[in-house]
Design a protein around this nucleic acid. Structure first.
Lengths: 166, 166
DNA sequence: TGCTGTTATCTCAATGTTGAGATTATCAAT
DNA sequence: ATTGATAATCTCAACATTGAGATAACAGCA
């Protein structure tokens, strides 16, 4: 009956009764949940010899469909990190043999990053387990609750400009 | 009518019709929202000469009530970071004069971190603006939506063990 | 008093991200 | 063709966090 954020809100009510801090009940919880879920996912991937960001890159390429390749730019937009971070990630995954860089003939500024055979095998092996793990993490929600939650979060994302590329 | 996560889900449906990836509609959105909100808050605090983590430390001390002091351990539990990170943060904030370290007489392993006069002034100056900024970020939600959202997120947090200290 | 286990904080090397700048390539318009 | 603006990627120094280990202090109990 109450989480850590309830305590925070109660403290503000006591210390600053004039302040209505309700937004913290939403934003604070999103932040904390994100952190907790990150930890859980990290543990899961560690058990399978991957970093979370490696899985994300593999999954992004896999779901883009054959030939399982995207430009570096598309990958960094998907991951919401800077270009420097993506260069670094691709370097390391290429060294591990999970992806390969392919020069783009059409636009020679671009690099296409393609899933290798082992990379494809890895994501195929893990994606079902990953989804099952996520189902476990959300087990506390009733089916209608989770649909409603997804809808509300979508509304928020749209209002913050999280619109698909094209 | 659709955010970046809807695209991800549609891709999985096309590529792997056998896989029901619904949890990504929740966990993916929580991750993305957390990142987007972080950026917004970062911009806001930058306009006021603070890092986000500095504000968090000030706010945690302020809402704990007079004499506005907590142990380093309490601060790192609140911030969900490791002890090394808190040591570093306190060092820098003490150098800026926002907090001061006070040896704990009762338990000499502990350090109490106390808001200085300038630190208190800073948080008092910013907290209302911060809440107003958060209200702005959540403006897309109707009042019942945000209450329901907060409730659902609380359910999730509790199920993941995010329970208050004592 | 002396042990043993636990707790609080700090230290520090390893690691990863950011953010700005450099490089190279493309595009639009003249 | 040439110029200027824009775009894609890579480079790299600065910075912050993690995670493991060190240090010091407390607590319970024989």
């Amino acid at each position: 009956m109450g989480d850590a954020v309830d305590v925070v809100l109660a403290q503000w009510r006591r210390e600053r009764p004039d302040l209505d801090a309700w937004p913290m009940g939403v934003i604070g919880r999103i932040s904390r949940l994100s952190r907790l879920l990150d930890r859980e996912l990290k543990d899961f991937f560690a058990d399978h010899g991957l970093e979370r960001w490696e899985f994300d890159v593999l999954a992004t390429l896999r779901r883009s469909g054959p030939p399982y390749e995207l430009t570096a730019g598309a990958l960094n937009r998907a991951a919401m990190v800077t270009s420097g971070a993506i260069t670094n990630r691709i370097d390391r995954m290429a060294a591990k043999g999970l992806v390969q860089r392919i020069p783009d003939e059409e636009d020679r500024r671009s690099v296409r990053v393609r899933l290798t055979e082992p990379g494809l095998a890895k994501i195929e092996e893990l994606v079902d387990l990953h989804v099952a793990n996520e189902v476990r993490l959300l087990a506390a929600l009733a089916p209608e609750q989770r649909d409603q939650l997804a809808d509300t979060l979508r509304t928020l994302l749209e209002s913050l400009g999280d619109t698909p590329p094209e």
